[in-house]
Nucleic acid binder design. Sequence first.
DNA 1: AAAATGAATTGACAAACATCGATATGTTGT
DNA 2: ACAACATATCGATGTTTGTCAATTCATTTT
Lengths: 96, 96
Amino acid sequence: MKLKYENEAAVFKALSDPNRLLILEILQSGEKCACKLLEDLEISQSTLSHHMKILCEAGFVESNRQGKWMHYSINKEGYENAKKILQELESCMLTK
Amino acid sequence: MKLKYENEAAVFKALSDPNRLLILEILQSGEKCACKLLEDLEISQSTLSHHMKILCEAGFVESNRQGKWMHYSINKEGYENAKKILQELESCMLTK
DNA sequence: AAAATGAATTGACAAACATCGATATGTTGT
DNA sequence: ACAACATATCGATGTTTGTCAATTCATTTT
């Protein structure tokens, strides 16, 4: 089923940008607000927002608004899902 | 270190295309020659060759020429590497 | 209600990517 | 050496992606 591969490809696509990997690493040390991420990440505010959307949609990050600040934190589900896909890909369990 | 993230991003980028995931799955059932892959994969010969190069360079696939046929097979190292990166990313062990 | 502030969205643009047809390279059999 | 075949490379093209500045939206504070 072609759709399946597209969903799975999207998961890895989220991990295929250096800035996004850096964001994930920074978040490993705990929840951060967007403004804090911006300090560490020589990119514009709109670019950061764009990356965060991709990471959230792929399940790697959770967001929660606290007042006017947006707080981001690691969502373990994304990692579990990515590892599961890798595992299935490796053991020939994907359904056609 | 910026370079580190680029190398890691390239690993996941290799997995971020539906056709390449399909190729990996097909190879799970054993070594295949390019012509066999071409039969299953509604893409042109040059496109297949391009994808195989990416998969090989990212460490997911090994190639070995047998006469005029090129045989491709799964390279476990790529999967181990990808899982290692995911694990490090998850446990905050990446060196800055 | 108005001003201020943080984040998301929009529109534009260049770089990267997937794809193809055509051509080149490498291998086998005549 | 040559013809046939399998694969790789090249050049072109349309699409996707990462990026930014400008704008809009949401929230808080005055």
